[in-house]
């Protein structure tokens, strides 16, 4: 930005790089430490000598994690909720957003107000719980999918995107004799792939991370998602069928390594796909910031 560098400016550059490097470390160190402890030998872990680099190499903690049926059940449930929930959420958001993107939709303003009002006020926890209960949704898959099915915020983001599609394209479809449904399916949606992908990813991450709904609506352990399993193992100290004395092939597994392994196994999918999908999330923030 500046061409003539003086001493002070150069000093600032070094300091800035240092600060940013420290920030990066603060973001990454917890993961490195967890990874190092989870694959170190029991001795150094118990002695507290493992920092960022593993001491020894030992995958017993991971073997123990995958022996635990609850982790596998949690994974399976979470995958079901994410796939089912994301599909339905996208479908309903499109059905809501596309009509509202029409400039002179009959009752359009009323519909929009009804949706915006839910962003400002809600019945709160107890009435929502009682309503879900009275619909008979407690302890069903639907308790994880329906309460947050359509996010008013994402619906409005999607609507803003649809509004930006040139009307001429839709009119040319009309001239070709396409129905309103066909115009949406054949013209509007193919042009909206970026926004659909981004919002789908947001929904998916939201459902993946959702702990609250499971806590409130699910009593049956066979339906618990991964987040609840992680919490039970790490925090409540219910180690169930795996303890320190529990062994993999006759060798003991340290609780600390085991808990870190559980946390990492629960984070791994996000860590793996994150670098590839990062730019879509960033685009999502940008689309959201352009208000209609």
């Amino acid at each position: 930005m500046v061409k003539n560098r003086n001493g002070l400016s150069l000093l600032f550059d070094y300091a800035n790089v240092l600060v940013m490097a420290l920030l990066t470390c603060a973001m990454l160190f917890p993961f490195l430490h967890m990874a190092a402890v989870s694959i170190s030998d029991p001795g150094p872990v118990v002695a507290g000598r493992v920092a960022l680099w593993p001491k020894g190499l030992n995958f017993d903690a991971y073997a123990a994690v995958f022996q635990d049926k609850r982790i596998l059940i949690g994974y399976k449930n979470t995958l079901i909720y994410v796939v089912l929930g994301t599909t339905l959420s996208l479908f309903f958001s499109i059905l809501g957003a596309y009509p509202l993107s029409r400039r002179n939709l009959v009752f359009g303003r009323t519909f929009m107000m009804l949706i915006v009002f839910t962003m400002l006020f809600s019945g709160g926890l107890i009435p929502t719980y009682l309503v879900i209960r009275s619909y008979g949704l407690l302890d069903t898959i639907w308790a994880m999918v329906l309460p947050g099915l359509v996010s008013p915020y994402y619906l409005i983001v999607m609507r803003t995107f649809f509004q930006g599609i040139p009307r001429e394209l839709e009119e040319s479809g009309k001239i070709d004799g396409l129905s309103d449904w066909m115009i949406m399916l054949r013209i509007v949606l193919p042009l909206s792939m970026p926004v659909l992908l981004t919002i789908g990813l947001f929904y998916a991450v939201g459902i993946w991370s959702n702990f609250f709904s499971a806590l409130i609506f699910l009593r049956n352990e066979d339906l618990h998602p991964l987040q609840v399993m992680i919490r039970n193992i790490v925090m409540v100290g219910q180690v169930g069928d795996m303890t320190v004395s529990e062994s993999v092939g006759g060798r003991p597994v340290v609780l600390e390594s085991l808990k870190y392994a559980v946390i990492l196994v629960g984070t791994l999918p996000i860590l793996c796909v994150y670098p590839f999908i990062q730019k879509h999330f960033v685009q999502g923030v940008m689309i959201g910031s352009v208000k209609g």
Binding site: M27, W208, F211, V228, I230, R231, G266, I270
Partner: peptide, 15 residues
């Protein structure tokens, strides 16, 4: 790197 923690669940961060 700095965007990453935004995507962690509250359960993972609290754990």
């Amino acid at each position: 790197v700095s965007y990453l923690p935004h995507f962690l669940s509250n359960v993972v961060v609290a754990s």
